[in-house]
Nucleic acid binder design. Structure first.
Lengths: 150, 150
DNA sequence: CCTTGAGTTGAAGTTCGCTTCAACTTGCAC
DNA sequence: GTGCAAGTTGAAGCGAACTTCAACTCAAGG
């Protein structure tokens, strides 16, 4: 039989710990049938879901958002290749933006390495529009950005 | 006088909450003098430290590592432009690697969007070396990578 | 003076994504 | 049968990076 996977098997094949799989289930990211003795049995399709979860995490998407995305899959039929492609496409922009921002950070950092500034004053890193030039004894505003992708 | 900043002023100018500044101090990332009444007064140089901390966080460096980096600044003299540039350079590689990995993820994702796979089987995303072709009823190993930059 | 906003502390709470633990129960090979 | 690895649960713990709270104290303008 190659329909049902035990949690151990799914863990091994997906590279995700059993405890994490149970956690995903609690959050509604994956589902499992139960044996008479109450053990989980996963349909093969869950493997693909777990794949999508891990890939999404690398893109920097939270489990909650991943859940929402997975919820948008058709409930009635087995998701098709196009269904998965649609979800993947939906992360594309986030990934692009993330790459763009890091690229900008790198360029700015290179500029700062050149001038040794980090000055919070003229440095584009901290003062994007030079909007604070001559603004009393120092400028404000670092990056409004939050601590970045954990 | 433009030497001493109160915690509120440093917070406003750096864009970092007072509670976060106190937290950074506890971790040894920044320092402050005290008034007779025990209130913090920050030297202007601390502004640059806070700038460095926030930038480093965007690069994805932990506060502990940032602390180590800041500890490498000369204690005797005021850090020079070159001192700061050296620290900035030290993050450069991490940033490059991060950008490279996200770029690869994007390319792989594009490939998967094309084929709609995410199959864990042939997809380079999950099976980098095609090492599992024809490996029983399904392959293993998603990405061994951890949940990515939080 | 007095009021009021800003600052002080330590301890506890928060969010995210899991892991660990204790105390059992199942499933399967022998 | 029996033995043992693998599975079950809920509750608690973890680490990172902060925030919130309560209970005060300071600083500065009027």
């Amino acid at each position: 039989m190659h329909e049902a996977l035990t949690i151990g098997q799914l863990a091994e094949r997906s590279g995700v710990a059993p405890s994490a799989l149970r956690y995903y289930e609690r959050l509604g990211l994956i589902r499992a049938e139960r044996t008479g003795g109450n053990q989980r049995r996963y349909a093969r399709g869950e493997l693909r879901r777990v794949a999508f979860i891990r890939i999404s995490q690398q893109v920097g998407v939270s489990l909650e958002e991943i859940r929402a995305a997975l919820d948008s899959l058709p409930a009635s039929r087995t998701p098709s290749a196009e269904d998965w492609a649609r979800l993947s496409r939906s992360w594309r922009d986030r990934l692009d933006e993330k790459i763009r921002l890091l690229g900008k950070l790198r360029d700015d950092l290179d500029g700062c390495i050149g001038c040794g500034c980090l000055s919070l004053r003229r440095c584009t890193l901290n003062n994007p529009g030079d909007s604070l030039a001559g603004d009393g004894p120092g400028a404000r505003l670092l990056l409004p950005a939050p601590p970045a992708t954990p």
